[in-house]
């Protein structure tokens, strides 16, 4: 078994779903997996860690942001491209979006694959998660956790594969579930559904 590093590219990394999913992933590797959040100040340190540890695999866990890769991760990729890393790990991706359709992640995955190709990294497995925002608060999380474990095993065994998860319900039901999810989210902040539905931007 090789040694794996998992980097969380979520802008809210310490409180993110990407972190929760990474923790499930890490369990499959026991002591052979290091986990770090990416932030604007730790690029140099993370690159040094990659250089010093001779990892076999590098996993990026991140959410879809504005149809693509979050800008914090994009900045890190640009730094990683400049770094002179001798033994380049194989890159795998665990991406999640809040939409129902897993294919909404496809552009971000292609961006990551182009990065790998351009910079001389091999590409490994992909886990494409949809309805990733709402799933952890439902029973369906166990379906997702099973996919994360399979994704981890594919990397552990170097039998790279693609995996897909979305909530196993109809799109119509998803729509209802997401409305309930967000309404409750607002309520916890003292904001009503009507207030959340305002059409005003900056009060205009």
């Amino acid at each position: 078994m090789g040694k794996v590093i998992i980097l969380n590219g979520s802008p809210r990394a310490p409180k993110s779903n990407s972190k929760m999913y990474s923790e499930i992933f890490v369990k499959k590797f026991k002591d052979n997996c290091d986990y770090f959040n990416i932030n604007n100040r730790n690029h140099e340190q993370l690159i040094k860690t990659i250089k010093d540890n001779n990892y076999s695999d590098l996993v990026f866990a991140f959410p879809l942001y504005a149809d693509a890769v979050p800008v914090g991760l994009l900045k890190f990729l640009k730094e990683l491209e400049k770094a002179n890393i001798e033994n380049r790990p194989t890159i795998s991706i665990m991406i999640n979006c809040g939409f129902y359709e897993p294919k909404q992640n496809d552009i971000a995955i292609r961006i990551m694959k182009v990065f790998a190709k351009k910079t001389g990294y091999k590409y490994g497995s992909t886990l494409k998660i949809a309805s990733g925002e709402g799933t952890p608060s439902t029973f369906f999380k166990y379906f997702l956790f099973r996919k994360i474990k399979k994704f981890a095993i594919s990397i552990r065994n170097k039998k790279y594969q693609d995996f897909v998860y979305t909530m196993p319900i109809s799109r119509k039901l998803f729509l209802k579930a997401s409305t309930i999810y967000w309404t409750r989210y607002g309520k916890r902040n003292g904001i009503s559904k009507k207030e959340m539905s305002t059409m005003l931007i900056e009060d205009k």
């Binding site: 800008v71 939409f99 351009k118 997401s178 539905s197």
Partner: peptide, 30 residues
Amino acid sequence: YGSYDVALKTMFERAIPIQQAFIRILDNET
């Protein structure tokens, strides 16, 4: 890498207040 570079991408990510949290169906997608 086929993406907007940092300046525009940062701005687009900060533009999400112009949307609501709620989801609709458009062109058969959420």
